[in-house]
Simulated assay, not measured.
Amino acid sequence: MPTGELVRLRAFDPSEAEALWRWNHDPDVMRWMNDGYPDSVAQVAKRMSEWPRNSYEKVVLAVETRAEGRLIGVAVLRDAEPETGNAELDVYIGEKDCWGSGYATDATRTMCRFGFDQMRLHRVTLWVVADNVAARRVYEKVGFVEEGRQRECFRRDGEWHDMIMMGLLESDLRD
C-alpha cells in the first residue's frame, strides 16, 4: 500500500459507499468540483461494486489516516497512457475536520510518487478551479506548476470561473 507521512492509500471497499455518498452530497466538500446529479447510497454502492479492477488506465484509491486508519478521502490517477507516460490526478479530502492538517498535501504527494515509481509515469496533470486557493497551494507545495488556463468554463453559484491546468514532472516532485 502506498504510504506517506500522514496517509495510506488503499483500494476502496463497496461497504464504504456511505462515506463517498456523504462527501459527494456535502456542498462544502463539492464546492469546487463537478458534482453531477444527486443519487442514493444504494446507487453509489452499486456503482462501486461495478468499478473495474484498478489498472494502469485508472487507479482509484481510498485515502486513510496512517495513525488511525480512518477513511478521509479519495485519490485517482486516470487516463494513464503508457505511450506518453502521462496521467491525470483527482484528489480530495471529504472529512472536513481533516482539512488544513496536511492530509491533502501528503495524499497528493503519495499518489504522485506511486504513479512515478509503480506506474513508471513521467508526468501527472490536473485541473483546478482558479479560485480554489487552498487546493492550488497544496499542488504547488508538491511541485505542480501552472501550465494553462481555460477561461470561464466552470459555473458555481451563478458565476463562471476559470480552470487552471497544472503539471508535475517526476523531477519536480517535492518531498
Results as ranks from 00 to 15, higher is better:
24 N>W: 12
106 D>N: 00
112 C>W: 00
58 K>G: 05
164 I>S: 01
167 G>I: 02
29 V>T: 07
2 P>Y: 02
171 S>V: 06
22 R>K: 13
125 T>S: 14
78 R>I: 04
38 P>D: 10
152 E>Y: 12
65 T>F: 07
45 A>E: 15
50 E>A: 15
59 V>N: 11
164 I>L: 14
102 G>P: 04
94 G>R: 00
45 A>Y: 03
106 D>R: 00
28 D>S: 07
61 L>A: 02
107 A>V: 01
42 A>N: 09
55 S>F: 04
2 P>K: 06
15 S>L: 05
5 E>L: 10
60 V>T: 13
123 R>I: 08
172 D>Y: 01
9 L>C: 04
103 Y>F: 14
23 W>L: 06
73 G>P: 03
130 A>H: 14
21 W>R: 08
68 E>Y: 11
88 E>Q: 13
2 P>C: 05
130 A>T: 09
164 I>Q: 01
135 A>E: 03
49 S>V: 07
110 T>L: 05
98 C>T: 09
143 G>A: 06
75 A>I: 01
25 H>P: 07
154 F>L: 09
4 G>M: 03
46 K>R: 14
148 G>R: 10
35 D>F: 11
165 M>I: 06
139 Y>S: 00
162 D>K: 12
141 K>I: 01
27 P>T: 03
122 H>S: 10
119 M>V: 03
130 A>F: 03
146 E>C: 07
140 E>M: 05
166 M>Q: 10
134 A>T: 10
50 E>H: 12
146 E>H: 09
134 A>K: 10
